[in-house]
Design a protein around this nucleic acid. Structure first.
Lengths: 202, 202
DNA sequence: CCACCAGTGTGACTTTATCACTGAACTGCT
DNA sequence: AGCAGTTCAGTGATAAAGTCACACTGGTGG
């Protein structure tokens, strides 16, 4: 089902046109939506699922920048679309996802014709910028043990993830995650097993 | 003199209207352009000068996120303008600056009427997002001594800055900067004095 | 049943962050 | 000039985080 709030805001006629020109795509879990350096073909409006956007530095280390879920807009694609530059990050499909692909021409037309569409795009940009600013602060100044605990608290147990993946989430090294987790296990706050973490929220 | 490339792109009539509604403001060095939490009144188009945008985390530590110079657009303000949220960062005027303030109404009108204006705004957003992504990677993975050296190389000696300010530039602690600089001095790569660093580019 | 391998644990060491304090350099005052 | 107050810089001690090297372990698939 094609449902995205930014499309709801369009006047009847424009909406009809949009629906005709939009192509809904389905991405299985595990797929790479785009890689660093690739050029983008259209603006994806997320309809369902979950996608993580991460980048890999010159050092070879990676960090998750943010996630996209239902009703999100792939802000990164806008920049690529407008400037013709390639992506700097890569997007990895975590759960099977659907996205409505808005081709360049339609995007221009919607930006031209609908103030509400523009507002939606700008809000999305603003939010992403905010997210990244918070991430910078987090990475620069916050303690890793705190960040790890918060990350764990924010999901529901059991969490299926490897220490390596968790390290990428937090932008640190695998060994650091292993040690901090082990410490938490000693404090009886989690139960560790291969590829799985059970958080004991007592 | 009011000259900003995004205004050049406007068709004659719209440009005339813009020039009428825009107010040029002058900010002396040392002034705070905006603080965290404040709401913004219009979109500043930088005409001249230099402004650094930095944020202070919950920990009390600060980090410089990016700088704005002539012909830049204050991307952060767009988000505040559109969503009505306050700024998350603060902007500090480093060199006396002039900015053309585009009021909300005019901004909406320009977005509505000019594709070129929209493109300019989007490009600016895209660049900022890119900058922040690079910063995240830098802060998360790169070594401080390398980053410090690069920072020093990128300006011309002598550099007038305190260790504390330099720490904020790099998002680290003052002591770390002091020690690394001292180390560089021992290697005869710099000459230190109070509030000043002479880089010996041999 | 065993080889293989991704995932995990850990010691040793380096780099960075934090805390606490000292001293040095500038400023403005008398 | 002499002094007090303030900002800036240096440094030891210690903790946190990152890096490197390598051992172990639980699954998977011959």
């Amino acid at each position: 089902m094609l449902h995205h709030s930014i499309l709801e805001t369009l006047p009847r006629e424009l909406q009809k046109e949009a629906l005709e020109r939009i192509q809904v795509m389905r991405f299985p879990a595990g797929k790479i939506l785009f890689r660093a350096g690739e050029h983008c073909q259209g603006l994806p409006l997320m309809l369902s699922g979950a996608v993580k956007v991460q980048m890999t530095g010159v050092s070879g280390n990676s960090i998750v920048l943010y996630r996209m879920g239902a009703d999100d807009i792939c802000t990164l694609s806008i920049g690529c679309l407008m400037t013709g530059c390639g992506y700097r990050a890569e997007a990895f499909v975590e759960e099977e996802s659907e996205a409505a692909m808005v081709p360049r021409g339609l995007f221009d037309r919607l930006m031209d014709q609908s103030a509400a569409f523009r507002l939606g795009i700008m809000e999305s940009y603003g939010r992403r910028l905010d997210d990244l600013m918070l991430l910078v602060e987090e990475v620069a100044f916050r303690r890793m043990d705190e960040r790890l605990e918060e990350w764990l608290e924010a999901r529901r147990s059991p969490i299926h993830i490897t220490h390596q993946e968790l390290a990428v989430e937090l932008g640190t090294a695998r060994e650091v995650v292993s040690r901090l987790l082990k410490e938490l296990e000693r404090k009886d706050r989690v139960q560790l097993s291969r590829g799985r973490i059970d958080v004991k929220g007592l």
